[in-house]
């Protein structure tokens, strides 16, 4: 069963087109990483799925219903980000108690356990926490709510490396015990890559790629060789990334299946083949300019 499905989803804010004609589905009980640079439209997409924002056009279905202003979707979904607000007069433990009233599957034991582990003070107030502590607290809410659809929008803002690692470990272990559909957005892939099942690449409001993360490493390869050889070989290929190496050499990233065919025809002579790291590939697929930052310096 698909938990989320979008058909031709477009969202505009005034004249700005934040999301452009996005079509995809997300299956039940999978962990999906929504990856894209800042300003790609990740938060907008997630808020439409959560039912906070309305699609300008296209169809969105969450649990087979239109999520906008939908109580059923709201009751089965939680949206965690660093903009979460809580009443200022409530202590952290009072907020936990309130959350418990709202969510049927709430796990207070888990919440208390994580509270102790991260040494949060139950009598503290949310607005007095540091940025990292706020993120940690929000994360605890997100995990303990045990919602069938759990959305984390850049959840680790301000957390230090150790806490981030603990967070992803806690997320995975809780997911193993209570499988559910989880979406985590991040502008970096490498820290979440291992726990993901799927990856959804978004840039400039458009879907670039949606694939099991284990296929991502095999999706593309890099070729390095003399520029004239590379240029001739890849003339009619989709090039994800290209840079010059020294004066005469060129480095290109292309699809693996295309590369294999080319190599069969042209032979390996003078060409080196490298794997492409998943997070590098994400950067290539979502970057504005093919040549990367070097293109700014290399124009003559």
């Amino acid at each position: 069963m698909d938990v989320i499905s979008c058909q031709g989803l477009t969202k505009t804010f005034g004249r700005v087109r934040a999301l452009n004609n996005i079509t995809f589905t997300i299956g039940q009980n999978r962990i999906t990483g929504l990856i894209g640079p800042n300003g790609a439209g990740k938060t907008t997409l997630l808020k439409i799925i959560a039912g906070f924002l309305r699609a300008s056009s296209g169809e969105v279905r969450v649990f087979s219903e239109d999520p906008f202003n939908n109580l059923k979707v709201a009751a089965n979904m939680i949206f965690i980000d660093d903009q979460m607000r809580f009443p200022q007069s409530l202590t952290l433990s009072e907020i936990l108690a309130s959350a418990a009233a709202f969510y049927e599957n709430w796990d207070m034991e888990l919440a208390r356990g994580l509270f102790d582990y991260f040494s949060l003070d139950p009598e503290q107030y949310h607005h007095k926490l540091s940025k990292g502590m706020k993120s940690t607290f929000n994360m605890i809410i997100g995990l303990a709510a045990r919602c069938p659809l759990t959305i984390f929008d850049e959840p680790t803002t301000g957390m230090d490396a150790g806490v981030r690692k603990d967070f992803y470990r806690a997320l995975l272990r809780d997911y193993l015990q209570n499988p559910r559909t989880i979406i985590i957005s991040s502008h970096l892939l490498n820290e979440i890559e291992d726990i993901l099942e799927d990856i959804f690449l978004l840039s400039e409001g458009e879907k670039r790629l949606q694939t099991p993360v284990s296929d991502l490493k095999e999706f593309a390869v890099a070729l390095r060789g003399r520029r004239e050889v590379i240029d001739k070989l890849t003339a009619d290929q989709e090039i994800y990334y290209q840079k010059s190496v020294g004066k005469d050499y060129s480095y290109v990233v292309i699809r693996r299946d295309a590369a294999e065919e080319l190599l069969k025809k042209a032979g390996r002579d003078g060409l080196e083949v490298f794997p492409v790291k998943a997070d590098d590939l994400c950067v290539y697929l979502t970057s504005r300019k093919r040549g990367g930052i070097d293109s700014v310096f290399d124009r003559n």
């Binding site: 999978r30 962990i31 992803y168 470990r169 995975l172 272990r173 193993l176 291992d194 726990i195 993901l196 099942e197 099991p212 993360v213 284990s214």
Partner: peptide
């Protein structure tokens, strides 16, 4: 796949593969 996922801190689908 779940034991492997827990041991290596990876997604169970990856372990299953």
């Amino acid at each position: 796949q779940y034991q492997l996922a827990e041991m290596f801190n990876i997604n169970p689908a990856t372990a299953a593969k």
